[in-house]
Design a protein around this nucleic acid. Structure first.
Lengths: 166, 166
DNA sequence: CTGATTGCAAATGCTTTGCACGCCA
DNA sequence: TGGCGTGCAAAGCATTTGCAATCAG
């Protein structure tokens, strides 16, 4: 894990008059050991596997803290739980393409697109804060072969994606 | 309400071997009398005010049906409930700009942007299904005056937007 | 010390579901 | 008449919160 990340959290905590705790350290460690998106529940399980005793409540509370500190972002995958993305530190302007069939998420950046969003936002009378282009699309594999290897049953039936922890 | 809409639902219902009911008619009527986004709860209340006796369960079940029939789309406003958008029939490629401060949603279209999303999607190895650019931004008003007239308290505290039905 | 933080369990809020009854085709 | 559709209440889930105990500074 990048040392700079812990420092950013420490600074945030100090500035806010909050306190450093082992739970917060453990959570930060687990999150930034990987660059994977995660749900609160997935994070909770990873913590348990790593030997941490942090409770679900603490996980939720800490996630709120990390969002406020701008270390992670919430992203909406439309599956009924909030997903968190730890990659905005390295790639502040990245976007997400989401496969409507299997829920696979691909991150990408595009300078041209960024510029255009920026102009569009201003033209509408707003000040750009955060870009988040979310494209919904379908894997070529799926469309060509008629089924997607990662296809999730519930999605086909037009329902929510099931909890991805399974 | 555009007559074509009822026909589209009728066709869908017939093709699926489903049945026409007064509740489905009432719900369709209420939704397409306006072009406003709505949550299931808001829809339920509008129905009640219009004298319909349709239950919440039926509202939820019918919304699923209408999404399947492609008469409305789900959009994620990140406030803990699903919002539905009835404007995709008239504007199939419109996008949403969401004010991070007050939750205001502005719809807009942009051909250039559409084209670019399309290219981007293909370049990533996907087939475009649906574009949905979601821009998060802030009203100029808010940034200039330090507060937004529509500002929602909870949002300031970094929490979810409260139920908009209030 | 003192207030921030945690864990637990209870509470919330949205959405889904089981079931018995009613109604469309 | 045969199922699909509905209403009701209960169940499900993700998330939040009240509270007493604990811990950091």
């Amino acid at each position: 894990m990048d040392v700079g990340i812990r420092k950013r959290l420490d600074d945030f905590i100090r500035k806010k008059g909050l306190r450093q705790t082992s739970q917060r350290d453990e959570i930060l460690e687990i999150i930034f050991t990987s660059d994977e998106h995660f749900t609160p529940d997935e994070l909770f399980n990873r913590l348990r596997n790593a030997g941490s005793r942090a409770s679900r409540a603490t996980v939720y509370r800490t996630l709120g803290l990390l969002v406020e500190a701008d270390l992670i972002h919430e992203i909406e995958l439309g599956d009924g739980q909030t997903t968190y993305d730890p990659n905005f530190i390295d790639h502040p302007n990245h976007n997400h393409l989401i496969c409507v069939d299997c829920g696979k998420v691909v991150e990408f950046e595009d300078t041209h697109l960024d510029l255009q969003n920026d102009c569009l936002t201003r033209r509408l009378g707003f000040r750009p804060v955060r870009q988040s282009l979310r494209i919904e699309a379908a894997c070529e594999d799926l469309r060509n072969e008629g089924n997607c290897p990662d296809l999730i049953q519930a999605r086909v039936k037009g329902k929510r994606l099931p909890n991805r922890k399974k």
